[in-house]
Design a protein around this nucleic acid. Sequence first.
DNA 1: GCCTAAACGATAATGATTCTCAATATAGAT
DNA 2: ATCTATATTGAGAATCATTATCGTTTAGGC
Lengths: 141, 141
Amino acid sequence: MDSEELRNAGLKVTTPRLKILTLLENSAERHMTAETIYRLLVEGGEVIGLATVYRALAQFEAAGLITRHHFDSGQTVYELERGPHHDHIVCIRCGRVEEFYDKVIEERQREIAASLGFTLSDHALTLYGQCNSADCPGRNG
Amino acid sequence: MDSEELRNAGLKVTTPRLKILTLLENSAERHMTAETIYRLLVEGGEVIGLATVYRALAQFEAAGLITRHHFDSGQTVYELERGPHHDHIVCIRCGRVEEFYDKVIEERQREIAASLGFTLSDHALTLYGQCNSADCPGRNG
DNA sequence: GCCTAAACGATAATGATTCTCAATATAGAT
DNA sequence: ATCTATATTGAGAATCATTATCGTTTAGGC
Ligand SMILES: [Mn+2]
Ligand SMILES: [Mn+2]
Ligand SMILES: [Zn+2]
Ligand SMILES: [Zn+2]
C-alpha cells in the first residue's frame, strides 16, 4: 500500500500525496514533468493544486522515493525510484525515453572521479539521438 | 582576432558580441551562466544589456562557437568550444568544475545507442562529488 | 558618406517553480 | 469517538530565468 511508503518516509499520509504516488506507480510513462502530473490528475477529475504537486515531489525526492532529471529541455522530469540505477537515452524527435545500465560506464566513472581526487556521489548520463520507433515523426529520411 | 570568428560564423561584428566573446576567452572560469557573464561585463565597466547577452549566447551556440550545459543547478551554463569534446565533474560543495575525456565511455555510448536502435547525436555526462581542493569548504571530515 | 536590415538596450512578458496565507485535515492524546 | 496542536492544502502572489517587443542605434555593402 502507498500509505506504508509515505509513513516509512516520515511523511503524513494525505490524500494529495497518495494521488500523486499512485499516479507515478500506474502511469505508463515513467518520466514526467510536474505540470504533466498535475494535468493528468486534474483530467482524471481530481481536485489538487499545482503547488501541492511541486511540494510533494520535493518531499518524495528528499525521502528517496523519486529522482529528478534535467534533460536538455530544461524542464525538470521526475521518476519513481524502483528497481536498480539506470541512465537514459532520449529521442530528439519524439521525446521517447529509454533506459539502460552499463557496468563498464559505471565502473569507469568511479575510476575517473578517483583519479581526479573527487569522492563520487552521483552522476547524470543522458544520450540523445533519433529512435527507430514506428510512431516517431520525421523518420524514414 | 575575435572579429574573424564572428565573420566566419556569419554574424555581424558588433561591440557587444566582441565583448562577450573576449570575456569567454579570457576568463579563468570556463563554465559560466548568462547572468554571470553579464555581471562580469557590467562590473568591468561595460554598458551592455542582459537580453543582448542571452541573444548573443544563443547565436554563438547555433554557430557552434559555444556549448550549453544543464548541471544539477538547473541554470544553463555556457562554455566556449575549444579543444576536443569532454565531459564534466562538478564539486557539490564548492561548485568547482573539472573536465575529462574517456575513450571507453565514449565508445560504450555508441554501442548502447546502436543496440537500442538510436542514431546517437549527442550526450551529456556529468559526475557529482566532493573535491579535494584546499579552497573547498566543509572539507576535512 | 548613405541606406537599410540587423542588432542593441530597456523593459514588458512568459514559463517554471516557490512562497504566502487563510482554511482544512492528520495523528496523537484524551 | 472527540479534541487539539500542528502539518498540509489550494489559490494566487511572488520570484527567477529566459524570451519577446519596440523604438533607437549601428554595421557594412554601395
Ligand atoms: Mn528512468
Ligand atoms: Mn567544459
Ligand atoms: Zn523518436
Ligand atoms: Zn569542492
